[in-house]
Amino acid sequence: MKNKLNIKTKMKSFITALMIALIFPAMAFAETDPKQDTVIIELNNNSKIVIITKSRADLASLENYDVNQMIKDLNAQLSDSVEYLEISDGKAYVNDDDEVEMKDWKINDDEVRIKLGGVEVDVDPDEIDDWDENDWEDRKKVTYEAERVDRTSHHFNIDIGLNNWLDDGNFPDMNNAPYSIKPFGSWYVGLNSTNRTWVGGPVFLEWGLGISWYNWKLQDTDFIIEEGSERIEFNQAPASVNGQKSKLTASYINATVVPMFDFSRGRRKITSIESGGVKIKKYSRKGFRFGLGGYAGYRIGSHTKYKFKENGSTEKDKETDNFFLENFRYGLRAQVGWKGVELFANYDLNEVFSTNRGPLNANNQSANLNAISFGITL
C-alpha cells in the first residue's frame, strides 16, 4: 500500500475526513466516458467515507475488500497532525474464510527474495529453521485479481527453445549439407532481465538486457567443426572414429526492445500462499497479447565440442576460438502469449559467420547462414 500523507505540523484537531479512493489506471478507461460516480457515506463526528468509482460494477467489487480492517490499520498509523490521507490500490485487503491478508509483502534485511517469471518467493531464514510439514498444512492461500498496472515493472525470465540456421532462406538439410543442424536437441537458452513499461491503452514496451546461448548440433556427428585458414570447415572424421556429438556454441549479451499489445491491459490473477517463513506469490496474466520488436547482441564466447568413441573409449575434444563468427548480432523478435503461456521467435538479420567465411555449399560458394530460434518463455 502506498500512503500519500500531507502533514501539517500546526494542526490542532484530529482528522475530520477520511477519503478512500479506488484508483484504476487511466488506460483501462481510455475509450469510455471519463465521468466518475461518487458515493459519500456520512459517519458520526462529521467524518465521511468518499468512494470514487467508474461504474456500478466497480462499486460491486468493494465486496471483496475488508474496509473495517483497512480503517483499523490506518487508524494505527495516524497522528494528530494528519489533515488528509489517500489510499491507492497498491495493497488489497481481501476476505477469505473470515481471514484478511495484506498482499504487499515487505522484505526484511535478513530475508531472501527469488523472482522468476510469474513466481515470487520470499524466505525468512530465522523462521524457516522451525518450519515443518504441519506449517504447510496450515498454510494461508488467497486468490484475487489485480487491476492495477505499474508504470514500469521488472521481472526475470528464461527463454528455452530450439535453434537452427537458414541457408539463403532454406534449411541446409534440404541439400544434405554437412552443416545441417539436428532439429531437436539444438537448444537455445536466454536469461533475461526485463522491464515492462505501460505506454497507454493496451500498449506496453518490454525492454531489457540478457545473455543467450546458441547450440548448433550437427545432424551428422561424423563431421568435425574446425577453423580453417580462410573459413569455418565441416570436415569428415577419420574412419576409426565413431562420432556421438558435434556442436558449435556461441554466447551473446543482448539488448531487446519489443512493443507489446496486451488486450487484458495488464490485468493479472494472483495467488498468494504463506506458510511459516515461506511466502509464495504466483502471477498469471490474462487474455491475449502479442508484439514484434528487435534486439542487438555482442558475442562474448564461442567453442566447439566433439564427442566420439575410438578404440572402445569415449573421448571429448573442446576448442575455444572465434571460428569466424560475427561479433555482433541483430534481428527481429516476435512474442505471443495467451494467459500463462508465452512464446517467442528470433531471427538474426545478419549472418552467423563473417562475409565469405561461412562453410562451402554445394555450389562451392560461402554459405549465407542466418540463425533462428523459437520456444517458450518461463
Rank of each mutant, 00 (worst) to 15 (best):
K4L: 12
K4Q: 12
I7P: 01
K8C: 07
K12C: 03
S13D: 14
I15E: 03
I23W: 00
F24L: 14
A26C: 00
A30D: 12
E31M: 05
D33T: 13
D37L: 14
D37F: 12
I41N: 10
E42G: 11
N44W: 10
K48H: 13
V50W: 01
T53C: 10
K54N: 15
R56C: 00
R56Y: 10
R56V: 12
L59T: 08
L62M: 12
L62H: 11
L62G: 02
N64K: 15
V67L: 15
Q69G: 10
K72A: 10
K72F: 00
D73I: 07
N75M: 12
N75K: 14
D80M: 09
S81Y: 05
S81H: 09
S88G: 14
Y93E: 05
E99Q: 15
V100W: 03
I107T: 15
I114L: 15
L116H: 03
L116N: 11
G117I: 04
E127D: 14
D132T: 06
N134C: 06
W136Q: 11
D138R: 13
D138N: 15
R139W: 00
K140D: 11
V142N: 04
E147M: 09
H154D: 00
I160D: 00
N164F: 03
L166D: 03
N176I: 02
P178T: 02
S180A: 13
I181R: 06
F184D: 09
G185A: 01
S186F: 01
G190W: 04
L191K: 05
W198M: 04
G201C: 03
E206F: 07
E206Y: 06
G208V: 01
L209N: 05
Y214H: 10
Y214E: 03
W216D: 03
L218T: 03
D220I: 01
T221I: 07
T221M: 07
F223I: 00
I225A: 01
E226D: 13
S229D: 12
Q236R: 09
A237H: 01
A237Q: 02
A239S: 14
V241T: 09
N242R: 11
G243W: 03
K245T: 07
K247S: 07
K247C: 02
T249Q: 14
Y252R: 11
N254A: 02
A255H: 02
T256I: 08
V257S: 11
P259T: 05
M260P: 06
M260Y: 00
S264N: 13
G266T: 04
R267K: 15
I270Y: 07
S272A: 10
S272R: 06
I273H: 04
E274L: 00
G276K: 02
I280H: 08
Y283R: 10
F288S: 06
R289S: 04
F290S: 04
I300H: 08
K305S: 05
Y306G: 01
T314H: 12
E315Q: 14
E315F: 13
D321C: 01
N327V: 09
Q335F: 02
G340F: 09
G340Q: 12
G340I: 07
V341A: 12
L343A: 10
A345Q: 04
N350G: 11
V352M: 15
S354L: 15
R357S: 10
Q365G: 05
A371T: 05
I372L: 13
